[in-house]
Design a protein around this nucleic acid. Structure first.
Length: 414
DNA sequence: TCTGGGGTCCTAGGACCC
DNA sequence: TCTGGGGTCCTAGGACCC
């Protein structure tokens, strides 16, 4: 068996690069570019150029803060179309280099080059990585950084070492030494909560963790994360590259520009979200058994309620019917201004082409054949004439100015 | 400074069944 | 009489990732 040879290709400030390509005359001409929600709204920074990062701007920061820190920047919305398009282009280049490519997110790809030594005539992994990097840049205009190691987690950490446009390969056998220098919070999967609980035990760096025995680490972080974290601290990374499984949930949520207390207004928003979720579900060719409603109150506490139907559903009407019941239960539990509302579906399965009479009025699902045909018809209309063509009467009857409020940032780009 | 939107995975308790 | 153990499903909440 040859040693695992795993690469992580990570696009450098990907959303910024896409925004520059989407708007060559605006963002494309500036060094200071910040991509995210509206600068005056409640959004956060999705990505900032390296020049803007020098001002202290970083992903996840409220836009209002970013404006204050870096007022001279060009503020751009998320360029959804370019983001999706370049993802496909980058992927195509990577497919030419590796038989196994896994898209871990829109801007990260794992490559498994295990067993390709003959194909590459014994070329050192670093040379291969440099060639991949150059070719991605030439063919797509996207800058990537590449990390390489015998496991996926180490490859991912390595990719961050020489960013941007860098390559870092961890030599086989050098894994433990490589890991020792990092804070535990640099390990993907160790977030603020776990890092803080380790810090209280005197562990900040991976090297502090590596000297602990397995039983101790398990007693600290639990049976499921303990063995994983213990091995990783020693540079033992069994993580390989695999195809992603089927999608498990579909959801849409929206933070309002101002908190909303009015129930009618909230139920109208809920309907819009149910329609969006239904459309996304059907676009994937899926049906769902569980509907979940999520509410975030003004004080940032989240509450959710979910219900699982005996039979899968797919129509906007059926999703909304369940969502409204759940929403009213949530409101009964706690009143007050609401900042965010979300509708999600899970327990997904494939859409079935079945005999209409077999599915008509299925006991318990509350969804009829008529509901499904109506949903299918509106999908076709939307596909033909664009989103917003067909909205439920309750939404269409509202003031058009009103309809625009509170829409997502990604829609502001068009 | 006042905190997005889309996901995945884990935990823990209760219901229900054998 | 007052008390088993395991498996599976559902629900709510939370950590984490990009």
């Amino acid at each position: 068996m040859s040693e695992p040879r795993i690469l992580l290709a990570d696009c450098d400030s990907y959303f910024v690069r896409c925004a520059m390509l989407a708007d060559p005359e605006g963002a494309g001409r500036s060094e200071l570019v910040i991509v995210g929600g509206s600068p005056t709204g409640r959004g956060v920074v999705t990505s900032a150029s390296y020049a803007a990062r020098a001002f202290g701007v970083h992903a996840g920061m409220p836009m209002a803060t970013a404006v204050r820190l870096c007022p001279g920047a060009v503020f751009a919305p998320v360029p959804g179309e370019v983001v999706r398009g370049k993802h496909v282009e980058v992927r195509a280049v990577l497919d030419d280099f590796s038989p196994v490519v896994e898209a871990a997110s829109v801007d990260e790809f794992y490559l498994d080059l295990t067993g390709t030594e003959l194909m590459y005539h014994g070329e050192p992994l670093e040379q291969t990585a440099l060639r991949i990097q150059r070719e991605v840049m030439e063919r797509t205009g996207i800058s990537i950084s590449i990390g390489g190691a015998t496991g996926r987690t180490l490859a991912k950490i390595a990719a961050s070492v020489n960013k941007p446009f860098g390559v870092c390969i961890v030599p086989p056998g050098g894994e433990a030494e490589f890991m020792a220098r990092f804070p535990v919070s640099d390990i993907p999967g160790v977030g603020p909560a776990l890092a803080e609980s380790l810090r209280r035990r005197g562990v900040t760096m991976v090297r502090d963790l590596a000297v602990q025995d397995l039983a101790t680490v398990v007693s600290w972080v639990g049976d499921s994360r303990g063995p994983w974290l213990h091995r990783l601290a020693r540079g033992e990374d069994g993580g390989r590259v695999s195809r992603r499984g089927p999608q498990k949930s579909v959801s849409h949520e929206r933070t309002f520009p101002m908190d909303i207390s009015d129930r009618e207004e909230l139920e109208t928003r809920l309907l819009m979200l149910a329609v969006e979720t239904g459309a996304s579900l059907r676009a994937e060719g899926l049906r769902a058994r569980t509907v979940t409603v999520r509410v975030r109150y003004a004080d940032f506490t989240d509450r959710s309620a979910s219900r699982t139907a005996p039979e899968p559903i797919e129509s906007d009407r059926a999703i909304y019917a369940v969502a409204r019941e759940l929403f009213r239960e949530l409101l009964a539990r706690r009143a007050g201004g609401i900042r965010l509302l979300g509708v999600g579906v899970s327990k997904l399965g494939p859409e079935q082409e079945a005999e209409p009479e077999l599915f008509a009025d299925v006991e318990g699902s509350g969804e009829t054949e008529r509901d499904r045909r109506l949903a299918e018809a509106s999908d076709k209309l939307r596909g033909k004439y664009g989103r917003g063509t067909l909205v439920p009467a309750r939404i269409a009857n509202r003031d058009p100015k009103d309809r625009h409020r509170g829409r997502g940032d990604s829609e502001a780009e068009s």
